[in-house]
Write a protein that binds this DNA or RNA. Structure first.
Lengths: 204, 204
DNA sequence: GTAATAAACGGAGGCACCTCCGCTTTAAGT
DNA sequence: ACTTAAAGCGGAGGTGCCTCCGTTTATTAC
């Protein structure tokens, strides 16, 4: 059934898209991200095409199934989240950077509930997706945590995997309306714990 | 999402259906079994309704989702398969009965590939389905195996769970076109093995 | 037998999916 | 600049999903 293989990412491996095609493709991904966020993962593909100002045929040419589109959007957002780690680290005190990043992580996860279902089909054929992305995420987190530990803005006896583990609670207890608030409180709580006993920078 | 609870089976617990409603319901299940067998699990519900001579609304009233309909068909067929065990035992030598039943089991499984996907949603809400049915199946098998052992038509040092285990290979290696033939050969092979060394009836 | 009423029917209609193919645009060659 | 073939576009159209509600029918009470 799922015949077409999903290219890891369509870089220069294959002849580059024609300019108009590339434009449409980018537009579609951007609009799809917005529409998925707004209407949920089951949003109408025809609406996405309409809002992107292209025909439905164009959407299907670029993304033969809903899952293909979802995957690209997902990757793009993980990318943005991870890129934000660097920027935050550059522009804020290290503990604030960490806190803000975790806040965004929560927001990000918030929109992704139910995405698992939609990706299950892809996961059978493309099992690198999760290892790819979860690798990127934990790498971003590690960067922030290590910087904060080194700067002495959070305690020195924790590492990134501890924090990731602590955030793990976010995945459980799904989908009540208060989920988001509860998760934000979790982040605050976690940050308080991390700041407590700080001031012993690992490297002065 | 899946709000409606699925009644275990709609026996006399609740006020009986009106005669015409019952008629339509039975018709729908019967036709659905045929259409699913013929066109696969994704067959059009509108076709089922059409062939059953009822409106699509009627189908949806009786079976609010595709999965509800699939489940009822599935249960009905398991039922039939298990009932066949008794009839076969009555009408054939015990080893022949066992062989024939396993042949039917293969045919049954053959039609059920991909059904798992369709039932996954139900399984979250209705996890008794599988334990119910797999219990019934292994019970039917046990009846046949024990009879054959007792009659001395198959060897005495195996029991039903051995046979079930041997049949387990059927589930794997999915969906090649030769699947069915290969499975039949497996059954033959298994029967040869079972007949070999027979003649030592457990009870004279 | 008849009337009243609750149950059931059925299909139109609105929306979404996805394919197919004639038309348009790009870009490569001259 | 012009030609041309390949790439891309887009939307009509056929099908399926599911809901809603006016109509029909079985059942119950008399």
């Amino acid at each position: 059934m799922a015949e077409a293989v999903i290219a890891g990412d369509n870089a220069a491996e294959t002849r580059p898209l024609r300019a108009d095609a590339q434009r449409n493709r980018d537009r579609l991904v951007e609009v799809a991200a917005a529409v998925f966020a707004e209407r949920g993962i089951d949003a109408s593909l025809e609406e996405i095409a309409r809002r992107a100002g292209v025909g439905i045929g164009t959407l299907y040419r670029h993304f033969p199934t809903r899952e293909h589109l979802v995957e690209v959007v997902y990757r793009r957002e993980v990318e943005a989240l991870c890129a934000a780690a660097g920027e935050l680290a550059a522009g804020h005190p290290s503990d604030v950077a960490l806190e803000e990043w975790m806040r965004r992580f929560v927001d990000y996860i918030a929109t992704k509930r139910g995405l698992a279902t939609s990706l299950r089909i892809l996961l059978t054929t493309n099992s690198t997706l999760f290892s790819d992305t979860s690798g990127r995420v934990s790498q971003a987190l590690r960067q922030l945590v290590e910087a904060a530990v080194a700067a002495g803005t959070i305690r020195g006896d924790v590492d990134a995997s501890d924090v990731l583990h602590a955030l793990g609670g976010i995945y459980s207890a799904p989908d009540t309306p208060e989920w988001r608030d509860r998760s934000r409180r979790l982040v605050k709580l976690l940050m308080d714990g991390l700041r407590f006993g700080a001031g012993n920078p690992a490297k002065a």
